[in-house]
């Protein structure tokens, strides 16, 4: 692995819990690595597996999905759906050669800023260990897959 590899992580966070937890970590001057870019959703149930695939195929090395603790989702049981989706998604990605551990689901309430910051830190180190994902994509010219040449008629 390259020594100066900095993992790029996309975090999908729930508006009602983990996004606030992350906010709280900031307010409380709790440090967490800048490798994670948080995207706020209204609920973990909003997570379309496609978002994770888009992130991974466009350059992310890992994806963290966070939601309210089981039983505490503001939209009843959407976080259980997120749980089931994540499990099925990881199985599918595994067949494609993406280490399923590059996708992680974490429950964190709005009060758990310290805990979330710690989890982010752990995940960044786990991904650093695994190294870059380097998925072949339009944005990754290192891997040569021929792309369309515009031909005008």
């Amino acid at each position: 692995m390259t020594n100066n590899f900095e993992p790029l992580i996309i975090g999908f966070t729930c508006n009602w819990c983990s996004y606030r937890a992350a906010d709280m970590a900031g307010t409380g001057r709790e440090k967490y690595p800048p490798n994670i870019r948080l995207i706020r959703m209204m609920c973990s149930g909003r997570l379309d597996p496609m978002f994770v695939m888009k992130a991974l195929s466009d350059g992310a090395d890992g994806v963290m999905i966070t939601g309210c603790h089981p039983g505490e989702c503001h939209y009843l049981e959407q976080n259980y759906k997120a749980l089931r989706r994540t499990i099925l998604l990881k199985r599918t990605l595994g067949q494609m050669g993406v280490d399923p551990e590059r996708v992680k689901l974490v429950w964190a309430s709005a009060a758990e800023g310290v805990y979330l910051a710690k989890e982010i830190g752990i995940f960044v180190e786990e991904i650093r260990e695994k190294g870059p994902l380097d998925w072949p994509s339009r944005k990754n010219p290192a891997i040569s897959i021929v792309e369309k040449e515009e031909v005008s008629v």
């Binding site: 379309d48 749980l83 099925l88 998604l89």
Partner: peptide, 18 residues
């Protein structure tokens, strides 16, 4: 947009387990 992602969503929604 992504066929498989839509199916993962659909199938995960109907599984009766928490």
């Amino acid at each position: 947009k992504d066929f498989g992602a839509r199916m993962i969503t659909a199938i995960a929604s109907v599984i009766d387990a928490e």
